[in-house]
Design a protein around this nucleic acid. Structure first.
Length: 817
RNA sequence: GCCGGGGUGGCGGAAUGGUAGACGCGGCGGCCUCAAAAGCCGCUGUCCUCACGGGCAUGCGGGUUCGACUCCCGCCCCCGGCACCA
């Protein structure tokens, strides 16, 4: 095939042309009227990027392309697809980077955003640039502050003192997930613990609903499971142990413990308090004080994560105090140990060394009594314990409950103790309240005013936004106090309630709050006087498809669900789950390894797009592996999709009028069927392969294609390679954009079937030949043909056919002996 | 330790229990071209055989089945997440 008389495919030209035309014609953007009037709305959301200075990386583009292919496909099916994009630009990463560079974030972020925008446009996503969101724009964070106020007014924002991870080098509070092995994830400095008063959203009140609703969501299983585990519901009982004085009399104080095994209470031979437990002082006997306090101080020096991750060897100190086991009536010693966490349950446990691995280890180390209270099969009350036994069994050494299966004992013992006023059944969650305070500069100020007379008072909504002042020296210092606390002219204000002198809250809020509601803002960015418009919101939300990384499977998605639920309960949203369908994309590796700067294997997209074009790059990314699993980026691999588009270009431009070849036509119908089935389920790699196969069939033997053969191909390629599809569509004589209407091709089921099918012929399960038959041929005819096949006949010679297995259109298997 | 996802040619990866390796990369040979870019044709799991054909092959070991990459049981390894959660 020659190129004579036709211009060659030059991706840069084609792509520049169509990006310009989309822009001019407003192909991908909605006016407010169009948003309001959309007949068939489809909100196609992808996780918005964090605009770092390095620019978009391949991982971003991979995710966005996968989402964009989906959006474009839905559009070609006739949906009004709204595909917005934005920038999640507040937060510690930007701030630290700005500090390192010596550029103010208010200068740095806009230039990053500009660069991201350029790159995003270049990749050919159908983003609606009229509806972008930038979390650092006062016009946006005004409403982030408004969201905070709605929770505050609903009593869901609480100020409480809490231990936090403190990085003495970054001079900042770290989230647990930012602490790796006891050290700051960014600088490696060992992390300490501090106590600071902070704002929390009481997400734990929603734990059960967040858990229950999971069943109703069309989400990746792995994501749902991650959420379930994070919520961590466990059923058990809260039991009360009376504290005893030196003479063995009850002091009136009781220690609450949470346990999932109330059935083992007869085996509780000691009690352990977390070092931070408020009753430590009270129960500690005079002579033990120095040791107990020393231990407590040591524990406080460790960060929260180290506390949990530390060595398996148990440490602890006896307080000298005792409490009464309410089941046995016996006095048991009270210890403190750092393996008991203040954050979980009640911060105190009844230790049952016979049936809990950790307690067993502790009891062994400190020579505390170990009693068996559950006997498994073949065991008795006296079978010695060489390790904690947590299996199934019946209760022993448990007074009246002896002989009872442990599951039943759980209920019975809880009931018994409840009747005695010593406990009740309880459900506990691992989920913690959401700490939204950040003692940093680069975030939206929390809209609260502290008044000596009135306490914390909400900033009146008409005074929003509380603008983050431009402060040249925003570096955090050792005080642990927010940088805004140094800006007196900013924080000095008057109380909105009583008018006396007051101070602004100087903490800013967590970036997860910015991203916890951004999807609500997108359709309503045309409204300046409300966070989200009621009509617009009920028209476009909840989000139809949300695509993003599994690294946000827990926090971002959980917080978004929580905020949506709260806003629903406040009567502000008609739905309580924001994302109908969520799919997590996989991870892109490079030469078999995760990309990282230290390995030097990071793929920079710009030069690739420059050399091969965005269309080729998009197809390659979608082709290199299953979208939900990721794949390996190999530099040479891009040649395949590159050649594919060149061949498509040549084939389309050299196509002639005429009737399609029958066999080719069938191939096309089969391809339309396959691709139509696979695009909605994100099986992009196999869909692309099918398109390649189809083009190969159209071109087989160097034949000239006819237009009816290439046209469906151009349409099917469009979601993957939108620019070249537009160009070819135009050159085929069509007016306007290929994405303008419902241009997705349809197929005829009857034409997906070939004239003949190859049937495999096996002898004893081994392939010995194939025969061509008409589809749907019956057993008798096929078997006859099969027996005549030369090679098959040889393998059957002299043998008795005992059985014939026949699968229509697939195979014949002769079972012989 | 727990939860999730994986292990298939030189490589990325395909395969409703029914011809394992689609599609693509890379490699080898050839064509077109002054040349390059793009393109075209053929071969390419492995071993035996000049060939026809045959043996062996989907992490390892068993099992179910006429037939297993696919289902069941028991292991090993890799990736991601969580981790003293009482």
């Amino acid at each position: 095939m020659t190129n004579e008389g036709r211009d060659a495919y030059v991706p840069a030209q084609v792509e520049a042309k169509w990006q310009r035309l989309w822009e001019e014609r407003g192909t991908n953007s909605y006016t407010r009227e169009k948003l309001e009037g959309a007949a068939n709305p489809f909100f196609n959301l992808m996780m918005f990027p964090y605009p770092s200075a390095e620019g978009l990386h391949v991982g971003n583009i991979y995710a966005f392309t996968g989402a964009d292919v989906h959006g474009r496909y839905q559009r070609m099916r006739g949906h009004d697809v709204f595909e917005p994009i934005g920038f999640d630009a507040f937060g510690i990463h930007s701030e630290n980077f700005a500090l390192k560079r010596g550029i103010h974030p208010m200068d740095l972020i806009p230039s990053n955003v500009k660069n991201f925008t350029r790159q995003l446009r270049r990749t050919g996503g159908m983003f609606d640039w009229r509806h972008i969101v930038d979390t650092t724009d006062p016009a946006y964070y005004k409403w982030t502050q408004w969201v905070f106020l709605q929770l505050f007014k609903a009593g869901l924002a609480e100020r409480k003192e809490a231990p936090v991870n403190w990085c003495p080098s970054c001079k900042t509070v770290l989230a647990n997930e930012q602490v790796i092995g006891g050290a700051c994830e960014r600088c490696g400095t060992p992390v300490e613990q501090r106590r600071i008063a902070q704002w929390f959203f009481t997400i734990t009140r929603y734990a059960q609903r967040l858990l229950d609703n999971l069943a109703t969501l069309d989400w990746s299983d792995s994501t749902r499971k991650a959420q379930e585990n994070w919520i961590g519901r466990s059923e058990g009982a809260e039991l009360r142990f009376p504290v005893l004085d030196a003479e063995g009399r009850e002091t009136g104080t009781r220690i609450d413990v949470f346990t999932t095994r109330p059935d083992t209470i007869f085996g509780a031979t000691y009690m352990v308090l977390s070092p931070e437990h408020p009753l430590v002082d009270e129960v500690t006997e005079e002579g033990q004080r120095p040791r107990v306090f020393a231990y407590r101080e040591e524990a406080a020096r460790k960060d929260l994560v180290a506390r949990q991750k530390m060595d398996k060897t148990k440490t602890g100190v006896f307080t000298g105090g005792y409490c009464r086991n309410p089941a046995t009536g016996k006095a048991i010693p009270i210890w403190i140990a750092d393996y008991v966490l203040m954050e979980y349950g009640t911060g105190a446990i009844m230790a049952v060394p016979g049936h809990d691995e950790r307690d067993f280890e502790f009891a062994t180390a400190f020579d505390l009594p170990i009693v068996r209270v559950v006997a498994g099969e073949g065991q008795t009350a006296d079978t010695p314990l060489s390790e904690a036994f947590s299996g199934d069994g019946i209760l022993v050494n448990s007074g009246d409950f002896d002989g009872m299966p442990w599951e039943e004992g759980k209920r019975e013992i809880t009931e018994w103790l409840a009747d005695a006023g010593l406990g009740e059944s309880r459900i506990n969650y691992r989920l913690h309240d959401w700490c939204i305070s950040r003692q940093r500069y680069w975030g939206p100020p929390i809209p609260i005013i502290h008044c000596d007379a009135c306490g914390p008072v909400a900033v009146p909504e008409e005074d929003l936004p509380v603008v983050l002042p431009r402060v040249e020296d925003f570096k955090p210092d050792d005080s642990g106090i927010s940088p805004l606390a140094r800006v007196e002219e900013w924080y000095r204000t008057t109380c909105p309630r009583c008018g006396s002198g007051a101070r602004r809250e100087t903490d800013v809020s967590d970036t997860f709050l910015d991203s916890g509601w951004y999807f609500l803002r997108y359709p309503s960015t045309d409204f300046e006087d409300r966070a989200f418009d009621q009509d617009m919101t009920s028209k476009w939300l909840p989000v139809k498809t949300y695509i993003g990384g599994n690294e946000h499977a827990v926090l971002h998605l959980m917080y978004s669900r929580f905020l949506t639920m709260v806003l629903h309960d406040l009567g502000l949203l008609p739905f309580e789950e924001p994302f109908t369908r969520f799919r997590a994309h996989g991870l892109i590796t490079h030469d078999g390894a995760k990309m990282s700067k230290s390995k030097g294997n990071v793929v920079i997209p710009d030069p690739i797009i420059e050399e091969f074009g965005a269309d080729t790059f998009r197809i390659y990314l979608m082709f290199l592996g299953p979208f939900e699993e990721g794949g390996d980026y190999r530099d040479e691999g891009i040649q395949g999709p590159h050649g594919f588009l060149h061949r498509l270009w040549d084939t389309v431009l050299s196509s002639a009028d005429g009737e399609p070849d029958a066999a080719v036509e069938r191939k096309i119908h089969r391809t339309v069927k396959q691709v139509t089935e696979q695009l909605p389920t994100l099986q992009y790699n196999t869909a692309v392969a099918a398109l390649m196969e189809c083009l190969n069939a159209v071109r087989a033997g160097g034949r000239q294609a006819v237009r009816a053969e290439v046209e469906p191909l151009v349409r099917m390629v469009a979601p993957f390679a939108p620019h070249v599809a537009e160009e070819l569509w135009e050159r085929l004589g069509n007016e306007g954009s290929i994405f303008h209407g419902a241009e997705w091709p349809s197929y005829d089921e009857a034409k997906t079937v070939d004239e003949t099918v190859k049937v495999a012929v096996q002898v004893n399960g081994k392939l010995r030949g194939t025969v061509d038959v008409a589809p749907g041929s019956e057993q008798e005819a096929v078997v006859k043909l099969a027996q005549e096949e030369e090679n098959v006949a040889r393998h059957l010679e002299g043998l008795t056919v005992r059985k014939v297995v026949f699968v229509k259109d697939r195979l014949v298997n002769f079972v012989v002996s």
